[in-house]
Structures are given as C-alpha cells and as structure tokens.
Amino acid sequence: MTHEEEMVIIAKVLAGEHNAYEQLVLAHQDKIYGLALKLLHNAQDAEDIAQEVFVKAFTGLQAYRGEARFSVWLYRMTYNMCIDRTRRAKRAPLQMPHAEEVEFDIKDPSLTPEELLLQRETRDAIERGLQTLPQNQREILILREVTGMSYADIAATLGIGEGTVKSRISRARDALVEYLKRDGTISRAKRHKRGKGE
C-alpha cells in the first residue's frame, strides 16, 4: 500500500467511515505482530500489544499528520510499547521462547529434508545468538530486520543519531556472525555447500 493510498483510507476513517480502518489493519498487522513477537517472545503479549497499537492508532488518528509513513508510525508505537512492557515486567534479559509458543516454519518446497534441517538449525542458532547481544543491539537489529525501516526512521524512533543506528546494526550483525562461527553453524553450512558442489 502506498503512502497516498494510506492517506486516502485515513481520510475516510476520519470522515466517519470507520470500517475502512480494517484495510490498514490488514496491511500492517503481520509486521506489527511479528515485531511485537520478536521483541517480547510471547505470543499472547504480542497479540495484546499489536491489538493495542491498532486501537491506539485509531483513537489517535487525528494526530497523525502523514509526515512519516503510517507503517513507521505504527512501528514506533509497537517498539515503544514493547520496550515499555518489557521494562515494567522487568523481563530483561528476554528469555528464549518456549518451543511451542512461537513455533513457526516457513517451508520452502524446493528444499530437501537435509536443507530444511540445516535451515532450521541456522535459524535456531541465529535466535540463540540474538539473545547473547546487548539489549540495545538486539532491539535495533530486530527493528531493522522485521520492519525494514530506514536508518533515519530508526534514528527518529529511538531518538539517537543515524550514525549510531548504522554502527549498532553493524556491530550486532558482526557479533552474530562471530557467534555462528563459534557455534559451528557457518562451517556446517559450508560443508553442505561443498557436498552439493556449489
């Protein structure tokens, strides 16, 4: 959905056509929920926050001026509410998710069982590695990877400089690469590639 399309829908909602808001919910709910889930590691909490974000956005729609993308506005709210909840609940550091709690599998039908296993192992290792990162690096990396927000938008959301955003994301990635090397994940992937003759 383009910014212009969003603005048209918002104008409708503000004019009293409240059902039009559903289009905005449908367009953004996956990322909002995904971001909350990645930050909170609890499906119920993520759902609660995502719901609250949309309701809050609806009630505060008058205040939205369209300077930033609507999605960015929602991401900011989601991030802030998740961090706020984490702080209130004193859950830091975040616990690893319970396997059943956020279990998901996006299977690529073209992959062999072995490749699927490797993909899953890599994903699990990255998840573990994420938990070893300093909180400010982990949160900023999640924000970037899940939402695809620009460095400028992230900087505005977090109230830090763009250079700091760039540097934290880079450090977070490098730390994860190091973790995956130590963990043996990268070498397993290399062996697999060599076995396939790639």
Binding site: N19, Q29, R123, L141, I142, L176
Partner: peptide
C-alpha cells in the same frame, strides 16, 4: 540473519476482527 530475523508467524486469524 536478515531472512531469519524477519521471519515471523502471522497473527491469529481472529486478530483483524477483534481489532475492528
């Protein structure tokens, strides 16, 4: 890393209707 971190399950099916 990008692929893995950006992957997330979708919200429950009832999510949209409960928000609305």
């Amino acid at each position: 890393i990008t692929e893995s971190v950006s992957e997330a399950p979708k919200p429950p099916q009832s999510f949209t209707s409960s928000v609305m």
